[in-house]
Design a protein around this nucleic acid. Sequence first.
DNA 1: GTCTATATCGGGATAGAC
DNA 2: GTCTATCCCGATATAGAC
Lengths: 189, 189
Amino acid sequence: MSTPDRLIEATQELLWERGYVGTSPKAIQQRAGAGQGSMYHHFAGKPDLALAAVVRTSAGMRETAGQLLDGPGTAFDRISAYLLRERDVLKGCPVGRLTMDPDVVASEALRAPVEETLGWLRGRLAEIVQEGLDEGEFTPGIVPDEIAAAVVATVQGGYVLARASGSTAAFDAGVRGLLSLLVRHTDPA
Amino acid sequence: MSTPDRLIEATQELLWERGYVGTSPKAIQQRAGAGQGSMYHHFAGKPDLALAAVVRTSAGMRETAGQLLDGPGTAFDRISAYLLRERDVLKGCPVGRLTMDPDVVASEALRAPVEETLGWLRGRLAEIVQEGLDEGEFTPGIVPDEIAAAVVATVQGGYVLARASGSTAAFDAGVRGLLSLLVRHTDPA
DNA sequence: GTCTATATCGGGATAGAC
DNA sequence: GTCTATCCCGATATAGAC
């Protein structure tokens, strides 16, 4: 792999583990096996490198989620597939995590891909809920955009509960709770 | 207010705004209007001060949430009151935020109050759901602990969505979505 | 109790040799 | 392209005067 690629990948990992504030250029260089000069040759600095990493991480998340949401089955099936997919729960969400970073939120450039990605996810989920409504799969009256927001929030908040307790149990409980509420709105006819 | 109190309060604010990694002793001193020597006289160092701050913030959150959860009304009313309470949404949760801080999660001492507080909240909500089940207010079959986890996760994840988009709308949408699913499990008889 | 001085280290980057 | 040298500043304290 090329040096820029290794630098970006190392930055992706470190942003996930330690956030923007907690990630130093030196740590990036060491993990990438690249020297100081090499890093500053390819990238303007920490913000530049972070942007490249965030963009790549965001694209990866869209790819992963998209596959599940575009998959086969009913609307409920696809939402379930997204919620129940295997995750490294205790590591949290590499995209959502960034919203707790003051420097990321303060930077229009860095926040943009985060907003886009989570916005896309909500939009895609809302479409699926709408499809379910159209098919008569859900009880009329629920609002697609609200259900979509609740689904994404449950996942993002599940990470918080899991990390607080040091166990994935809380994440699973939240997901099951949401699904148990949603399932009763399906029409098995 | 005493100097230690001002130091703790300044630390509470900074931990909320910038997290543990992003908060420096110097910043604390400046916000508290205390000198270097003064801070190190009253507290052993940054971890010690942070612990005092986290404990106090946790107690405050229990106090606030407890009042709403112990309030009047049906189980659904009290859960609604908790979800719909006024919040500084874009600031996020001062307790949940800490779970994204690697140094907090790595420290048994610092993580303990976070775990306790969120655990207490889930437990209290689960009790209320159970009361609702006992009263025949909810459709049988839902699992109190799971619903409780979903409720707390929706709030914590709602903060993430709000901060990502720079708007409180996503938080509100998620909460309304969850309530819309829950309300249909109530028995208005 | 609070102040100032001092110390060490790492963050974040630039400069110029190779 | 990559390396090493160098720079400045802030993070996180300790020491000792007042």
